[in-house]
Design a protein around this nucleic acid. Structure first.
Length: 288
DNA sequence: CAGCCGTGGGA
DNA sequence: TTCCCAAGGCT
């Protein structure tokens, strides 16, 4: 038992947020939906959409029985709407290949659309209490500071990071699961990317980064993605028109949503290629 | 594998 | 106001 376990688990017990997908009664499907929605979207914005989603589609089969466009519409403004498409596709696969039950094994989960290393581990651990390292951006930042004496982790997960995270897992499955969610929560609430609250950290005394005097990040520059005027913004505008309309939308309505014709054409084409939009007639479009 | 894929809120 | 994100995945 690492001497980090007790203080971190104790801190989590006292300070963890009461989130619906963490409730003991939460289904594996609820956890799955939350993990898709939380991919790059803050908790506060996920909460209401997650509740509405579970109310409408309490099981994977319920979602799978509806057109993918309904998932895109219900996704609302969470961003990255391809996630809605992938969640719908995952529901279909779960229904067809796993009898409607969210699989518990990492490999089965990893094979589902929209589920990468992080999400497969998260569902296996948080929904099925499996013992597996969960390496999200929060956990990576916490462990990098605590053990690596650096401010931020490298761009991609390294074998060393994974080995350290795995070696640090408590022996018991349930304790390991709580440990993983506790590290995530610590990263989200205390060991934040900017302005870490070391005064509130249960393992500040053991933190290699703090003990080294908080050396500044020295890796490759981390690019800030621009947004205004990009294809992402244009796609967002076009899709918002489709989402907010009950049925089909005329080409003119879409044209009015973005000024640049060339960029608008490119983006509409890419939305069609992604399957987020379908053409319903010569001059009308709709959600799939 | 670096770049692309949305969005709205906090500092 | 402007900047910087926030529980990734895919190609």
């Amino acid at each position: 038992m690492s001497d980090l376990h007790e203080p971190v688990l104790g801190w989590y017990d006292a300070h963890a947020r009461d989130l619906p997908w963490r409730d003991p009664s939460a289904s594996a499907w609820s956890v799955t939906v939350s993990e898709f929605m939380l991919q790059q979207t803050p908790v506060a914005r996920v909460l209401p959409v997650h509740a509405a989603w579970l109310e409408r589609w309490p099981t994977p089969a319920a979602l799978a029985s509806e057109p993918a466009g309904e998932a895109v519409r219900a996704w609302g403004r969470l961003g990255y709407p391809r996630r809605a498409l992938r969640l719908h596709a995952a529901a279909v696969a779960i229904t067809e290949r796993h009898g409607g039950e969210v699989p518990a094994g990492y490999d089965d989960l990893r094979a589902l659309p929209g589920i990468g290393d992080y999400t497969a581990a998260a569902i296996a651990v948080f929904a099925h209490t499996r013992r597996h390292a969960v390496l999200d951006t929060n956990v990576r930042r916490v462990l990098t500071r605590l053990l690596g004496a650096r401010e931020l982790p490298p761009t991609a997960v390294t074998v060393g990071e994974r080995a350290r995270a795995t070696a640090l897992l408590p022996d018991e499955d349930a304790t390991a699961a709580t440990w993983s969610v506790a590290l995530m929560e610590l990263g989200a609430l205390v060991c934040t990317a900017a302005r870490p609250r070391c005064g509130e950290c249960p393992v500040a005394d053991a933190c290699a980064w703090r003990l080294a005097g908080y050396p500044a990040y020295d890796g490759p520059p981390r690019r800030v993605q621009t947004y205004d005027g990009t294809d992402r913004q244009c796609r967002g505008r076009l899709l918002a028109v489709l989402r907010d309309a009950p049925g089909q939308v005329s080409r003119a309505r879409l044209d009015a949503a973005w000024p640049g014709a060339e960029q608008r054409e490119r983006c509409l084409r890419s939305l069609l290629e992604d399957g987020l939009v379908i053409r319903t007639s010569e001059n009308t479009y709709a959600l799939p």
